[in-house]
Design a protein around this nucleic acid. Structure first.
Lengths: 228, 228
DNA sequence: TCGATATTTTTGTTGCATCAAATATCAATT
DNA sequence: AATTGATATTTGATGCAACAAAAATATCGA
């Protein structure tokens, strides 16, 4: 029977094509890319018009982002991208340390040589991006680097939770990056993570990723403090 | 002005009056209470009919639970309450240890004597419930006990994430409880947490809550393994 | 010019009809 | 009896209109 032939060969289901989901993904992209003026008001109808869908999927997407904390209600009918306060940064950072540390530590259990190679390629792309001062690209590949490691944990819900945390710092990270690029602290953290992964040393990977988070924290904190 | 008198006394906004939110809350209750036959199929229209609302709020509620992982898509048009697999239990437990440990440790920063008193009252209620074999009540107060501590962290998004984790173990915890009640291991963990909170010893509170989670894990694992 | 009030516009929510797709049902054939 | 295939039913997604509430704007009085 064909089931036997196909078993383990074909990907299981991978069904996920509804407009609400798509709208959510696009909005998410826009938010993490910092393409939205901070404190700009979002309305169901404006999102619907901008993305060419009706109000229903737009409302779905906004509500979902709202429930994740990536958007907040400022008034009863006013949703905005929240500006990161110092307290919110502290909360997100502590949570990130806990969850990303956990995922990083576990990543060595499933890490294959191909994963290490992929990470090395990504790091090369990050270095090129830094040389070319292409922050957009650096930010994008940096994100891929982190999440490749986190996905190795094999725990998809954990990864989803981490994603929702990145959604909260994403806009601010973007503001920060021209400065961040000056100083290449992140590079050594990433190299340490790769080393740890190659040696299947979970504690080392965890520490490297935690250090990366802490370095980012210091910069974000300085930015928030300075802008008052 | 009355604002000054009320500042810090009254809950901040408490704006939460839309049918979708309400439907979400009710469904959530039903799920954690284990009142739903496991693997029962949920449909938008059946939820709408059961709760006396139209399809829109019902769909909102189901989608939100879906995005939190409290419900899962089994087929393209089939959502069910997921039965906890061993791997899912491992994931939720590791995440709970990380997040609830964090919240517990931080709880001492804001803990007031009144909070300690409230926890002692709750523990008394738990003991009575155990004596009376009123598992429903024990489960409810146990939940309140944990979340009173977690809310003391002062980090609402962290608490929200923890809530979504409880939503995933809730149904199984319910199945478990008659057995759990035999053995009162949980009581000593709670007492240790109260002691730690009184002494403002964050590490002690963290350890006590972690131990409580681990004790529950052992029981849940045994149940899952036995039912195969 | 400024502040309060009235008016207009915009907004989220809700319910519902429609449609394509998925599921369930059942008969027919092997 | 089991499996296939056709048919009927159920389902989620989507768009849209109506409504009440909120926000924006205009108006007016001092």
């Amino acid at each position: 029977m064909s089931e036997h032939l196909l078993a383990g060969v074909v990907t299981p289901i991978a069904r996920q094509s509804n407009l609400g989901e798509l709208t959510y993904a696009r909005l998410k992209e826009i938010i993490v890319a910092g393409s939205f003026p901070p404190n700009e008001k979002l309305t169901v109808r404006s999102v619907a018009a901008a993305l060419g869908v009706s109000t229903t999927p737009a409302r779905d997407a906004i509500n979902r982002l709202l429930s994740e904390g990536a958007l907040v209600n400022e008034g009863p009918k006013t949703v905005v991208i929240p500006s990161l306060t110092l307290d919110a940064l502290d909360e997100v950072t502590a949570t990130r340390l806990a969850l990303e540390g956990l995922a990083a530590e576990r990543s060595v259990l499933a890490a294959a040589p191909a994963d290490v190679t992929a990470l090395e390629l990504m790091q090369a792309a990050i270095n090129s991006g830094l040389d070319a001062a292409d922050y957009r690209e650096v930010l994008k590949v940096n994100r891929e680097f982190h999440f490749l490691i986190y996905r190795l944990s094999g725990w998809p819900r954990l990864v989803a939770m981490i994603e929702s945390l990145w959604l909260r710092v994403g806009p601010s990270l973007n503001e920060l990056y021209p400065d961040f690029a000056q100083n290449r602290r992140g590079v050594s953290n990433h190299m340490a993570a790769i080393d740890g992964l190659r040696a299947k040393d979970g504690a080392k990977v965890r520490f490297a990723m935690e250090q990366d988070i802490r370095d980012g924290y210091v910069r974000l904190k300085a930015m928030i403090t300075s802008r008052g």
